[in-house]
Design a protein around this nucleic acid. Structure first.
Lengths: 204, 204
DNA sequence: CGCACTCTTGAGGGAGCTCAACATTTGTGG
DNA sequence: CCACAAATGTTGAGCTCCCTCAAGAGTGCG
C-alpha cells in the first residue's frame, strides 16, 4: 500500500513515477537539477561530502517529502534507503498556477525540515541529539511509539555528527534508563516519550 | 551605501521598506506569517528556543537573503543584529508570474543556506566548525579576507552548538596557529584562508 | 563453515563543559 | 570628565563526555 503524508501535498497526477531499489543512487551532487522528486513510498537519504572524505547526512526523506531542490545543479547526493517510489517533477520555473503552487509548498516543507535538522544538531550532548532524532523520526513515520530505523548506525552517526560508537552506546544508555527499548538494531520502541522530550528539550 | 547581493534577487520595486535598529525584534516564532522580509542592508539573526531555555541560532541573514518563511506561522524568531533595512513582501500564495518566481528563487536560496548550516554543524570539532563558519561568513560579507562579526560570542556559540568559552579559546587557538588575526572581538582577518579551508574540510 | 559486514562493548586519552576568576569594553549617573 | 556598574570577552583548573583504538558478538550470504 502506498502511504502518503499530506504535508508536502501531492504532485499532479501526470507526474511520472520512478522506482528505486534499496541502495540505488537517485542523483548526485553537481548533476544538472533537471527534476525534483517527491517521495511516494520508502525512505531516501541525502548527503554531501567534504574534501577530507567525511560525509554529512543532510536529512532523511519520508513519504510526502520533496528532494532534489537545487537551483541549477543538485546540492546533495540522494540514495534510496529502502525500496522507494518517487514522483518525478520537472523543474522548469517558468510555469504558473497550480504547478508553481505545488513547488512553493514543497519548498516550504523542505525548509521546515532543514530547520528541524539544525535544531537537532544544535543540541550539545549525544543523548540529547539522539532523543531529538528519535522523536522527529517517530513523528515522520507516524507509527506511534514504534520507530522504524531504516538507516544504519553509520547514517545516524553522520547525521548527528558523532561516531557510530557513541550512537551504539547512547542507544544502550537510553535502554538502561528505560526511555526506549530496542527490538533489533532497526526497530525501537519509545517507552517513555515524555522523558525523551524532556531530554531533547522539546515543548509539545 | 546599500549593498545588495544578487543571489536572492530583489523584490519588486513596489515592496515597502522597513527599518530596524540594532537589537529590535522583527517577528516572533508562532506569529502569523503575514509577510516575508528581504534583507537590503544590515544583518539579522534568526533563532528558536527549546523548552529548557536553550537557544538555537538557525542562521544569520545578510543582504540578499530572505527570512520569515513560515507556512502559516513563523518557525523562528528574528532580530536585527545591526541597524537593518528590510523589504517587506506579502506572503499570499495565490499570485502567479513574477512575484511567485521571486518567492521561489528566494526559497531556494534560503534552503541552500540551511544546507550550509547543516554542513557546518555536522563537523565534529570546534576548530573545524569555527573555520567553516568564518569561511561562510567571509563569503557572505564579500569583504575578502576581512571578516566582520556583527554577532556576539554567545550568538556564535548558540549557532555552532558549543559554549562561549570554547568559542573564545578556539579564536585564540586559530590566532596562535597563524590562521587568523583578531582586530577586536568583532573583526577578524583570515591570514591563511587555505589553512582554514583545509581545517574545515572544504573543497573550493 | 568461512567470510564480510554491522553492531556492541571496553579501555585510555583528549576535547570541550563547568566552575571560577579576571580583563576589557560599554553604558550610566554624578 | 570621572567613577562606578553592567555587560562582554578571555583564560585557567578540574572533570566529564566522546573519540580513538581494539576486540568481540550477531547476522547474512556464498
Amino acid at each position: 500500500m502506498i502511504k502518503v503524508s499530506t504535508q508536502g501535498g501531492n504532485p499532479p497526477r501526470s507526474a511520472p513515477m520512478l522506482r528505486f531499489r534499496k541502495g540505488d543512487p537517485i542523483y548526485f551532487e553537481g548533476d544538472d537539477a533537471s527534476a525534483w522528486y517527491a517521495v511516494a513510498e520508502g525512505v531516501v537519504r541525502s548527503c554531501r561530502f567534504q574534501s577530507d572524505g567525511q560525509r554529512q547526512i543532510i536529512g532523511f526523506h519520508y513519504p510526502g517529502d520533496v528532494l532534489g531542490i537545487g537551483y541549477e545543479t543538485y546540492m546533495d547526493t540522494a540514495e534510496a534507503l529502502t525500496d522507494t517510489s518517487l514522483w518525478c517533477v520537472p523543474s522548469q520555473t517558468d510555469e504558473t498556477g497550480r504547478a508553481a503552487g505545488h513547488r512553493e509548498k514543497a519548498l516550504r516543507v523542505a525548509l521546515k525540515g532543514t530547520h528541524e535538522a539544525i535544531a537537532i544538531l544544535g543540541r550539545r550532548s549525544a543523548p540529547e541529539r539522539m532523543a531529538a532524532f528519535l522523536l522527529a523520526t517517530a513523528e515522520r513515520m507516524g507509527t506511534g511509539d514504534r520507530v522504524e530505523l531504516p538507516m544504519c548506525r553509520t547514517d545516524i552517526a553522520d547525521f548527528l555528527g558523532v561516531t557510530i560508537h557513541t550512537i551504539s552506546r547512547t542507544f544502550s544508555q537510553l535502554c538502561d534508563e528505560g526511555l526506549i527499548a530496542l527490538d533489533g538494531p532497526q526497530r525501537c520502541r519509545m517507552i517513555d516519550p515524555a522523558g525523551l522530550q524532556a531530554l531533547a528539550g522539546e515543548y509539545r
